[in-house]
Design a protein around this nucleic acid. Structure first.
Lengths: 230, 230
DNA sequence: ACCACTAAATGAATGCCATTCATTTATGAG
DNA sequence: CTCATAAATGAATGGCATTCATTTAGTGGT
């Protein structure tokens, strides 16, 4: 159970005191599960800027070059993290309630998970699903949900892709600063925009602006895509 | 007219032969417009990986440190590029045709421009509009288009944000490899997904898959959001 | 029981990158 | 005329991912 060894290696702690001597250790120190866990810990503690191969090695109490016996590159580490996060997305709606409710719960959960991990979005967008079992499992469940709801088979993938595109874009939006639409000194030359910004800020008492936009767009997509069902 | 000087500096060429001697030159060599143009040239020639401060300096026939007299950081360069690209987005539909057609043309154009520049998307998402005049101009035109079409003022910004989120996510989708949904050896355990992938590939004779998904989602958003008009 | 191969660690490079700093030279305001 | 300021050079600096030679430990075949 190498994951346990890795966890022990980390909890043993050794705060940099006596170093391990060179050569293969009796019990393996590293494995993918341990690297993934350490990366997630590092990300939550220091953010993605803090996720360097050197920092990761330090958390695992290992020399940086040791990591390359288990992953081919830093991109590989990001891939491990990405696939782990996919397992956190809520799929419970598919199979129980209506298609609309299932999609809504899935989309909110998906957006919320990746709003905390926007640096992974460029990775996901280009990642072949073959290399990501959790991701593949999610697509299978969602596809089945769409099929059972009466979607024509050839429309399922485009519909999921459209929803995902909206979800990824919206995840970025969550991270935007509050004053992103403040026109500052240029406000005079943008009367319609400035008024719209003021008005939407005023009309919104509860919740984040990003949530309002997400809710609005998601409802539009769900009703528009739902019409494709036979 | 410093932009001209910069252009001359670049066309003079000097292919690295005799170096400029230290100290302030009689005519300024650099300015923001020239830096922006050089960055765009570099990006189109070598991609975003090739856009380094050193490479940019070389194109402009200048020492890397000289750039920092005009921009505070590389992020600043990306911001200049981003704002320039915004001026390429098609706004001609607003003011002529229907709201639906205007939004459709705007959205396709917006997506196509940034599909070639996805590394800028994280920059845009966090960029206060104050620092980006072209971006601000675009929002003004689009806001006016929504207002004239009968949108309640407080819904305009959320509606635009929802559309933009979909556009950014879809821009990533354009860059995805063709075989991104190939399940490979895992296909056996994902029957519904694999069948959906096969079916959507078969049903689609013309155009890129990304275009199909974008068209589908955009129509859904336009009809859903259009219903908000009074 | 030996031996060769492979796996997994260390530690010392390597090369690239953004950024900073001291220095030099030119311009323009008072 | 002079002096602050702007705009260039060139030489660091520190951080980064990655590679390589080396060391040690397990393993499969004979």
């Amino acid at each position: 159970m190498p994951a346990v060894s890795a966890a022990q290696g980390r909890s043993t702690g050794n705060g940099g005191a006596q170093r391990r001597r060179a050569g293969r250790p009796s019990a393996a120190v590293l494995d993918k599960a341990g690297i993934t866990a350490a990366a997630l810990e590092l990300i939550s503690r220091k953010g993605y800027d803090g996720l360097t191969m050197a920092a990761l090695a330090k958390v695992l109490d290992v020399a940086p070059s040791a990591l390359y016996n288990h992953v081919a590159s830093k991109q590989d580490v990001l891939l491990l993290v990405e696939d782990h996060l996919m397992s956190l997305v809520d799929l419970s709606g598919f199979g129980s309630g209506t298609w609309e409710d299932a999609v809504r719960a899935w989309a909110w959960s998906y957006r919320n998970v990746f709003a905390e991990h926007t640096p992974l979005i460029p990775v996901i967008a280009v990642l072949p699903v073959t290399d990501a079992p959790q991701t593949l499992a999610m697509y299978e469940t969602v596809s089945k949900g769409f099929l059972d709801a009466g979607f024509p088979q050839e429309r399922i993938i485009p519909a999921i892709v459209a929803l995902e595109s909206f979800i990824f874009g919206s995840a970025y939006d969550v991270t935007a600063p509050e004053d992103i639409f403040d026109s500052g000194s240029m406000a005079g030359s943008t009367p319609n925009f400035s008024a719209a910004v003021r008005s939407s800020a005023a009309g919104q008492e509860r919740g984040r602006p990003a949530d309002t936009a997400f809710s609005l767009g998601l409802d539009a997509l769900i009703s528009g895509l739902g019409a494709l069902r036979s």
